[in-house]
């Protein structure tokens, strides 16, 4: 197990370098004149241009620039945005909001997805099963860019149950609707997977054995059926995290949440290379670490999985 973790960590380093390198390359290859982009429409004097070029190593070869950047990252220095704000500060503003939003979305997805999936799987063919099937088809069919404004309009504006936008310092309550929207697709896939998994496992031989022991129906479902049905669902959570991150950009945009998504969007729009690369680097790390955790959790849930 320890060897496996070490190998995975080494792989993560390679992946991290590769991913940041690609993003860095894309961001910097694409921009014509970062200094002009920084200044907007105003003219830039040669003096200023020279200082900025020095500061950002703009004359060095691309690989050297990347090297400088990585050195900064390793010492915890994300650099500055083109507007001069330390990216570290931007991060510490944005990340808590996004983490809250993502965890809330994951919580709702897990709660509703697994809960409803379990009931649907136990009562196949019931009204509940059919209703959730129809609902999940709708949700899976609607891209979040459509779903988010609709939810905002219906539950925020029309019904007024939730604030329409989260505001600069979003409260947990203000994040509920965005989290539901963000987690909707995950809820749907988790529900379908749980249902399929439960439907298969209730017929498993070991469930029959559990009943033959005279265990209560509740224990048979909660311990034997659910435990085994969670194995594929846990893997899905790891995969879903990527979807969640992508969805966060849109959701945060629609609900005006000052999180990673909106900062990333802003960075892309203003061609702010350091900002984008900084955020993406952290996203890559988050993604890699969660996937490692999910894989380890998978081994805990299923003892047949052995990592060597």
């Amino acid at each position: 197990m320890a060897r496996y973790i070490i190998r995975r960590l080494l792989q993560m380093v390679v992946t991290f370098i590769g991913a940041t390198f690609v993003v860095y390359a894309l961001m910097f290859a694409n921009q014509n004149d970062p200094i002009q982009a920084l200044a907007g429409d105003r003219p830039v004097s040669d003096n200023v241009r020279q200082v900025l070029t020095e500061q950002y190593h703009l004359n060095d070869p691309f690989v050297v620039q990347y090297g400088y950047y990585m050195r900064g990252l390793l010492t915890g220095d994300f650099g500055k945005t083109l507007t001069g704000r330390p990216i570290g500060d931007v991060m510490s503003d944005a990340w808590p909001n996004t983490i809250k939003l993502a965890l809330l979305a994951l919580f709702f997805a897990t709660l509703f997805g697994i809960g409803a999936g379990l009931v649907a799987g136990l009562r196949r063919g019931s009204a509940f099963d059919n209703t959730t099937l129809a609902l999940t088809l709708v949700v899976v069919g609607l891209p979040i860019i459509v779903l988010a404004p609709i939810a905002q309009l219906v539950f925020g504006v029309k019904l007024g149950w939730f604030p329409t936008t989260a505001g600069a310092r979003p409260s947990l309550y203000g994040l509920i609707l965005p989290a539901l929207v963000l987690g909707a697709a995950s809820t749907a896939t988790m529900l379908r997977l749980t249902r399929a998994s439960v439907a298969e496992n209730v017929r498993a031989d070991y469930v029959r054995t559990a009943r033959a022991k005279g265990l209560s129906a509740r224990r048979v479902v909660a311990v034997h059926v659910l435990r085994n049905s969670m194995i594929p669902v846990i893997t899905l959570i790891g995969v879903d995290l990527g979807t969640l991150m992508a969805g966060a950009i849109i959701t945060e945009g629609v609900f005006n949440i000052p999180g990673v998504g909106s900062k990333l969007l802003l960075g892309i729009q203003t061609e702010d290379g350091p900002l984008v690369v900084g955020f993406v680097s952290v996203l890559v790390v988050v993604f890699l670490v969660t996937n490692l955790l999910v894989d380890l959790l998978y081994a805990v849930l299923d003892p047949r999985i052995r990592y060597e």
């Binding site: 070991y206 029959r208 009943r211 033959a212 022991k213 005279g214 265990l215 003892p303 047949r304």
Partner: peptide, 22 residues
Amino acid sequence: RQVRGQEIAMVFQDALSALNPV
């Protein structure tokens, strides 16, 4: 349910699938 397992118990054919793998 009380009788099941306590008074009358059963051994199944394929022990690999009849035992819970986890």
